[in-house]
Amino acid sequence: MFSAFKTLVGRDLLLAMRRRSDLFTTLFFFVIVVSLFPLGIGPELNTLRLIAPGVFWVAALLASMLALERLFAIDYEDGALEQMLLAPQPLFILVLAKVTAHWLVTGLPLVLMAPLLGLQYDMATDALMAMVISLLLGTPALSLIGAIGAALTLGLRGGGVLVSLLVLPLYIPVLIFGSGAVEATASGLGGQGHLSMLGAILVLSLLFAPIASSAALRISAE
């Protein structure tokens, strides 16, 4: 069971390495969206510091959502998904492996890039720390929840737009607690409460989202 998990994570990372352009699109998207806001709002640092948590989190949300489309789609097209469904392994383990690899490729770079971009917004060090931690807890949850939507819309026309319609309402708690943590830290209230809520959401989605995604995959692959 664990070796299947390792195999699949390894395979997906290897695939990502061989297609490095895919790897960077999500990251670039995140960087560009975050950098666009000062251009739209104005370079006033006080304003920027105020909106930074929200901007970063909304950008992370959109980036994670954009990346979802590729989560199962390629496996679906080349038939690898069929073989996953027929493998004598619990499907949720394989889903978990797919999501893990997906997050390592699309989520983690974004978390690492965030503090650098935070400097553009003149954020304080503790706020930057809170941002990294909240993204570290939140983006895996986004990938896990998003996997359900990606699995449900597999092979449908207009899948990308549809996925956002399905998944964005479910992302709201993560958005609220994620940006809340950064905000609370920046205003000196301390973000621990929010961060523990984020942690709770992550644990819940770790437990339930792979099962729901597996069910969705079975429905979609019929």
Binding site: I148, L152, I219, S220
Partner: peptide, 29 residues
């Protein structure tokens, strides 16, 4: 239609599990 029904059903169930979490987080916010 069969896939539509089953996929829709799954989505509704995921939604209904999420409603309390969403409501709670919105209230907190």
């Amino acid at each position: 239609t069969r896939r539509a029904d089953r996929a829709g059903a799954l989505l509704v169930l995921v939604g209904v599990v999420n409603i309390p979490i969403i409501y709670y987080s919105v209230q907190w916010w």
